[in-house]
Amino acid sequence: MDLTMSADQRDLRAGLRDYLQGTWTPDRLRAAAETPALDRGDWSGLAGLGVFGLTVPEAAGGMGLGLVDAAIVFEELGRALVPGPLVATFLAAGPVPGADDGGAVVTSLDLRDPVLVAEHLDSATHVVAVGDDGLHLWPAEALVAEPAPAPLDPLTPVSRVKTPPVAGERIGSAADAAGWRLRGAVLTSALQVGVAQGALDLAVRYAGERTQFGRVIGSFQAVKHLLADSLVRVDLARAAVWAAALTVDDPEAGDPGEAASAAKVLADDAASQGGRCCVQVHGGMGFTWEVLAHLYLKRAWLQETCFGQADEHARHLAEAL
């Protein structure tokens, strides 16, 4: 039993973190919030780092790593607020040609959702529809959808799907669809942990600089305890996400469905509450477009709706009691 990062995993994280710090600077995020179309150069950059092919076997051109390595990578992507249909493209690597090398941008729809909304449809090349009967693939232009003029997360354009297409190319069985949902829940949880950590880092930095009443506000217990609460939520969620990723790869270690549901419940909570905390600690500045706090919270709210909402996962966990 070992739930600490290996030297390789720390290197993987450090390399990606360096790249993302250089690429997704605060100014770049602000600019992208105005013109959110994906830059295919960025997408190829992520693919070049192996982000989408991490768990694809080495014989098939991937890195042959485990889902927990992907969780470490996706936490960094979430922390940097990298936009794009990252989880769907990752999951499509293999069944959809080009997904692993950056040649394809794959977005997805879960046909169980009562309201069908596609992310980044204008930038996408493919859409994977996840149904209880299996996985279906469409070319992105086959989807009739209406773009929303003001998406909640400024970096994530969304389009309301009017009529789902009837048939596409079937690329996976019902079991593959279940696996897609399971791995998607774990990776979305990892993104949420990253969002929570990024929001906490930003809030801690501000609390250590902003002075009121002659003291930095981070020296007041009222502010400290808000931040400590965020830290507790993010640490708990991270442990749950790692355990879930390991359990999905090794079902003898536990029940993958329960582990993934627990991770999603805790990670959604860490991200949305962490985003709120970040806005609150920034005070009036936290309510401005200029300060990035709102981007963390809005991304958290977006990702809460992906791969099962927390309440749904909680009821799933209750069934096992």
Partner: peptide, 26 residues
């Protein structure tokens, strides 16, 4: 069921956190 499930998620997370703490001690 939602409330019980949320508490169960926390218990699962707490166990993972124990495993992480023990791994760090190791």
């Amino acid at each position: 069921r939602r409330d019980a499930g949320r508490l169960a998620a926390e218990v699962t997370g707490l166990w993972a956190l124990i495993q992480k703490n023990v791994s760090e001690a190791s």
